[in-house]
Amino acid sequence: MMRHQDAVGAPRYSREERSLMGLEFGTAGAALGGGILLALQPDGAFLHADPSVLRRTPFRDWRLPGLLLAVGCGGGYLTAGMLHLRCHRAARPLSIAAGLALIGLEAWEIAVIEFQPLEAVFVGIGAAVVVLALRLPREGAPCRRTQP
């Protein structure tokens, strides 16, 4: 994939890069929003999340899982998206790690808690993030921005 610059020197991103950043920012928003709502209302009332599904986990309510979701998943995907916007060389490996972590998290939820269709959607998102990130140049060279 090649990055091009527009007339003012700002980087233009390929369709794959825009798709990857869209998935990263969208996932970050969902994880931050959902995690904060779970932490604020640990009985799961805001999201209609029944605390009884946590019976086979070390959690008694949704507060800590919500915080982990917001910080871990939301923060990770937000950081990956921001690094892509900044054309940072760490963006590619962080995106791959974030995608694999999401797949692993959803696999754990399916095995330990219970299967829900939304988990399959997030497995697909994690896989798409990994595939799109792997299509980026291995070196992940920063964008060459021209100075005004």
Rank of each mutant, 00 (worst) to 15 (best):
G104F: 06
I103R: 05
L94P: 11
A98T: 02
E109Q: 07
W108R: 12
E106N: 10
T79H: 12
R89Y: 04
G81I: 06
I110D: 07
R86I: 00
I96H: 03
E109P: 00
L83V: 05
C87G: 15
H88Y: 01
L105C: 03
M82L: 15
I96T: 03
A111H: 13
H84A: 10
I103W: 09
L85V: 08
E109K: 00
A91P: 13
L100H: 09
E106I: 01
I103G: 05
L83Q: 07
A111C: 10
R89Q: 08
G104V: 04
C87M: 00
A97D: 06
M82K: 12
S95H: 03
A111D: 11
A98G: 01
R89H: 08
E106M: 14
R92P: 05
H88G: 01
I110C: 05
R86C: 02
G81D: 10
A107D: 04
G104P: 07
A111Q: 14
A97N: 06
P93E: 07
A101Q: 01
E109I: 02
S95F: 02
W108L: 14
P93N: 08
A101M: 07
G99P: 04
G104Q: 08
E106Y: 02
H88S: 08
A90G: 00
A111V: 09
A97P: 05
A111I: 06
G81R: 09
A91T: 10
L78R: 02
A80C: 11
A90V: 00
A101L: 11
L105S: 06
A101R: 01
I103F: 09
L94Q: 13
P93R: 09
A101D: 02
L94R: 12
L102Y: 06
M82R: 15
T79R: 15
W108K: 09
I103V: 15
M82Y: 14
H88K: 07
S95C: 09
E109S: 04
A91H: 12
A91F: 11
I96P: 03
H84G: 13
L78Y: 03
L94T: 08
M82V: 15
L105I: 02
L85Q: 14
Y77W: 11
L94E: 11
A98M: 14
L83T: 05
G99F: 03
W108M: 12
M82H: 11
L83N: 05
A91V: 09
A98P: 01
E109N: 09
R92A: 03
R86P: 00
C87V: 00
A111L: 15
L94M: 12
S95W: 03
C87A: 11
T79P: 09
A97G: 09
A111G: 10
A97L: 15
A107P: 01
G81K: 10
A80S: 15
H88P: 02
R92E: 06
G99D: 04
Y77L: 13
A101N: 02
I103Q: 12
G81P: 10
G104R: 08
A80R: 13
H84K: 10
I103E: 12
R86K: 11
R89D: 04
A111S: 14
I110S: 04
R92H: 07
Y77S: 13
Y77V: 03
H88I: 01
G104Y: 08
P93Y: 09
M82Q: 13
S95R: 05
G99T: 03
A91Q: 12
I110G: 02
H88L: 02
I110K: 03
R92T: 06
P93H: 08
A80Y: 13
C87Y: 00
L102V: 10
S95V: 01
A90F: 00
G99Q: 05
L102F: 04
H84D: 11
